[in-house]
Design a binder for these strands. Sequence first.
DNA 1: CAATTAAGATTACAAATGTAATTCTTGTTA
DNA 2: TAACAAGAATTACATTTGTAATCTTAATTG
Lengths: 133, 133
Amino acid sequence: MSEINVEISNAEFEVLNALWQAYPASANDIIERLNNEKEWHEKTVKTLLSRLVKKQAISFEKEQRRYLYFPLLERETYTQSESHSLIERMFSGRISPLIAGFAKNKHLKKDDIDELKQIISSWEQENKGAKHD
Amino acid sequence: MSEINVEISNAEFEVLNALWQAYPASANDIIERLNNEKEWHEKTVKTLLSRLVKKQAISFEKEQRRYLYFPLLERETYTQSESHSLIERMFSGRISPLIAGFAKNKHLKKDDIDELKQIISSWEQENKGAKHD
DNA sequence: CAATTAAGATTACAAATGTAATTCTTGTTA
DNA sequence: TAACAAGAATTACATTTGTAATCTTAATTG
């Protein structure tokens, strides 16, 4: 639905990520969640929330004096779009070079391999006998 | 060797990417390569080259009046680092959600699947009998 | 040799970003 | 009710980024 055109900056992403954890959430909720990771001033977080609202990545509804924020941009939509674009730019759209790099750098663990196998199985199920694409 | 600390911006990356295609290369070489893709003014490209030099992502040696640029930052080093960091941020370090997203969005083709299988085989060869990590 | 080019160096300038501080408002408390 | 406190809104300000234009210098040409 809501096609996000604008860029989400790194700092904004951290805030959005904290909101995705659970929402609706007040500014203070977000600030608390981020305090475990970052050392951001509360004013900073509020600025970032405002910018995310302006970019239409999130919205809010008033609950008394405070706002309860919620994402307009879904996490999966965003992460898929970002990873697709990175793979396009870095690897001309192929995923295997990325995975191969992970393998080479020892970032692939047994669990990852198992999950990959699972994905492959599912893909083969859905594409059984098809020779398209 | 050369640990790159600074961020490479999007526009800078395009230039670096063009340089990776073949180097050493003069500013004009890069400008020509980019003209097929982007519609950048030559001054813009030169600015980006300068910034990449300042960031120590590339360097050059003089050949008469002109410079011949070459990367200090290797493509693979950079792409692996970028993809690792994206996966860390977006998927808490796991690769399978990324691949699953690709599968769901029909971005996985037969060739990709074959390559993934190949990677898995190699991994299993190298990790035969080992129960570490 | 003087004028013109063509490289790179320096400067420009608005928008985005990181990181807050200050101001405005309104519910709450003495 | 008057002062305060806690949210949000507005303003701030240096740095980075996108996108060039101008300046300087050295090679080339008439």
